[in-house]
Design a protein around this nucleic acid. Structure first.
Lengths: 353, 353
DNA sequence: CAAATTATTGCACACGTGTGCAAATCCCTT
DNA sequence: AAGGGATTTGCACACGTGTGCAATAATTTG
């Protein structure tokens, strides 16, 4: 009944064994046998075809329900390369920004009858590549992604086009890839936030950011620099963090910045967790926010503001991003060539405390 | 090249249309044709069979890589009901507890070569049922789930057994279902937390909980009541919230509790978001924590404690839960009948501030 | 009542893959 | 050169489903 065979597969960085299990499932042929009719008739009856007599249709549907028949999607998809799964690939889901967007897109897609799968790259290019290849193997209808920090090469994403699987990138995108994109006006909003700091009198503003080859961070760094230039400030300091953002990194980076000969009096943090870490470190150092140090963070945590740590928050339009992303991927699933290379730029807002 | 057909499908509560797209993909037959050999030889070559000559093997693999061939998992799964996808079904991923556990299980599974899909029931029984049926249709290797608040009937989960798809429930489980379970000692830890409140002098302790038919909440309510009884306290007050937990609900519930004739002097909150809401309301009312009101919350947010709102946190062992869950689902994927109806009870801990 | 029309059902194939078995090719030995 | 074993390749089928087409059954028509 249950025969198990072992299968060698080359994974990210190790050879592992996948155990494939063989079990028999209830099929239309079982129904056909029991009802003494042909399985093609069963198929038509289940699809509600009017070429099947009402009696047969009724009998088949009732019996199918009785024995708990479920169609085998693999057969269905194999037959016609039928697809009803949308995959979402994000660096992680513990950043509220990602889990919010993912949640919202998933709900919209579910309502339209799609199955939504969520995948985490863990900010690893290799894992991201592995995931994308797996998605091709699994015949997904469409892919929504925000790339990892390590991702510079976009070959794995190009492969999706080869298989005519539509792709929509959001937030973090590949600049060299001509594909549907949903982005936030990072440069503009960070420039504004920096100006707010300047207007409030801070003169030594440091920017804790990510690798500049990622549009999100490159744009923010450009916005930061343009604001400094506009106001003729000399001091400029960008710390680029290459791996994923954590609270500890926020703490450490803040600590080392405060050790530098020219101490910053304001921190512009590109991630919610970084700003939290920075705040903890600042409190440890017995400094006050915003009197001693100004903080700008990305407030993807809806309730953190309620603790009123005195920071300025840049808020991304999660719901708008999600609905735009879904609208575009849906359009492209219906017609692969539609909205290709379309870029939407959505406005972030700033909450001053 | 791209023929699109429309398909009527009965969804949760509406009839919707799924657009199935037909595209042709690169197959081993393409490789066979180009290399003028039989597709079965290609198949063997790709699998690294030693019955294929070294030259042919090399030629095939190089060509496959060159044209970007990816195996069609649908065909693979259809052939032998091969399965390499683990599905995780949770009420949502915006509660840190769930996103943490999901994240960790996903990573462990990925390392073993499984593909992990994450699904949200949104605390809805109907959506949960829909998801589970879809998982059966899609031939998953195993299912990990934490049920929605609405889930009382477990028929949809039983259906998994019929198809011999292993199931591991964690945290919120179905009491009437004989299946592998990973739980936390809720009753015990809540009893302890309640006793801590009592020892600190609080006498009117209210409990904001969930529907008692869910083990997690039923157990916690029992723990709460047993502690009160043990210390001979009269006041007992349980507010049962039937839908998902939000910050606003925490606020509202706290507000209404403080309007009652006997005002509670401590709140035991069954969710992180509930306790946050309660804290905000308490601050609004100009009350102090812990002087005026004691708060116990489920601290599934690792950094919230750093804001030191003066609360007592019950911390669940996320990593241990995740590794236990994965260990069990893996065992059951290898052998469906192993560890069935095994129940693991893991210890939560209390952080006093 | 026979013929024509329509309603219903069965047959066979395709989708992409892997594998048992047979056929074909190769190399070695005598 | 012929036989024999070992190596390599091809053939055919199965997995579950849906659909064009043909065959049958039921109904209507003249």
């Amino acid at each position: 009944m249950c025969k198990s065979l072992i299968f060698e597969v080359q994974n990210v960085n190790q050879t592992i064994f996948i155990h494939y299990i063989r079990v028999k499932r209830i099929t239309i042929k079982d129904i056909a046998r029991d009802l003494k009719i042909h399985h093609s008739t069963v198929s038509r009856a289940l699809r509600g075809s009017s070429t099947v007599s009402f009696d047969t249709r009724k009998k088949v549907n009732e019996y199918a329900r009785e024995i708990g028949y479920q169609v085998n999607m693999n057969a269905l998809q194999l037959r016609g390369s039928l697809k009803n799964m949308i995959a979402i690939v994000v660096p992680n889901i513990y950043h509220n920004f990602f889990s919010n967007v993912v949640s919202l897109v998933a709900d919209l897609a579910f309502r339209k009858g799609f199955v939504v799968s969520i995948f985490q790259s863990n900010e690893s290019y290799l894992q991201e590549k592995e995931i994308v290849q797996m998605l091709i193997r699994n015949n997904v209808a469409g892919v929504v992604a925000s790339v990892s920090m390590e991702t510079q090469d976009s070959g794995h994403l190009r492969a999706l086009s080869k298989y005519r699987i539509p792709l929509v990138l959001f937030d973090r995108v590949c600049p060299d890839l001509e594909v549907t994109k949903v982005m936030v006006n990072n440069q503009e909003v960070v420039a504004s936030a920096t100006e707010i700091l300047i207007e409030r009198g801070y003169r030594h503003i440091a920017h804790i950011s990510g690798p500049s080859h990622i549009n999100v961070f490159g744009d923010r760094q450009a916005g930061y620099l343009s604001a400094l230039k506009k106001h003729g400030l000399d001091y400029q300091r960008i710390v680029r963090i290459e791996s994923g953002f954590t609270i500890d990194q926020g703490k450490e980076t803040a600590a080392s910045l405060f050790m530098e000969k020219t101490r910053p009096d304001a921190l512009l943090c590109d991630s919610h967790l970084l700003s939290l870490g920075a705040i903890f470190k600042i409190r440890e150092l017995q400094l006050k926010i915003p009197e001693d140090v100004g903080i700008v963070g990305f407030g993807d945590n809806p309730y953190i503001d309620s603790f009123n740590p005195g920071m300025i928050s840049i808020v991304q339009p999660d719901a708008l991003i999600a609905s735009t992303v879904f609208e575009l991927i849906f359009k492209r699933i219906e017609n692969f060539d539609a909205a290709i290379s379309e870029t939407k730029m959505l406005p972030a807002s700033i909450i001053e405390k």
